[in-house]
Amino acid sequence: MIVKRANLSFWERLYLPALLSGLQVTWRHFSRTFFAGKKVTMEYPEQKWVVPEGYRGAPYLVRDQSGDTKCVSCQLCEFVCPPKAIKIIPPGSSGKPAERANAEKMPAEFEINMLRCIFCGFCQEVCPEEAIFLQRDYSLTGLSRGEMIYDKEKLLALGGTHAGVQKWKHKLDEAKEQETFPVKG
């Protein structure tokens, strides 16, 4: 691409008008900040930022309204996670069954490495159980790398409760209403 050079007038070529307007702009900002005290920055640790609704902070696991773990260890979040921050250990055939009746499966361990997490929200988007949500925490600190790997207990404790459709409970209720199965002859 060839950019055509603008033809400058004599005054423009002297740079002086540009200098003056630069002075004007800088003085305007200087005086506004210095005399009127208007600043755009925040003095962070003392002043905390108000996180807007829908902000994508740290992902945490949530419990349903009955206080049960929602995650069923489907590992879709682990699969979709771009920086591979999530690690799930499935229960295996002899593992502890899910806390929610009828759901069969619950992760034996669920870890998010917050040093790797990029807060993209793919895990929340992909979750078929509404079990993981990006919440409002944005300043995560720790004294060691190990400390920054949040395990299931920690994630559940931080995540709180999310009341939603209780798919598995609904299925169980539906099954209970029906006649016994198999039909005994």
Binding site: T26, H29, F30, R32, T33, K38, K39, V40, T41, E43
Partner: peptide, 13 residues
């Protein structure tokens, strides 16, 4: 400090 004020900041404090 001058740079901070010109850029609507506070500067070292």
């Amino acid at each position: 400090k001058v740079s901070a004020f010109i850029q609507d900041r506070v500067g070292p404090n």
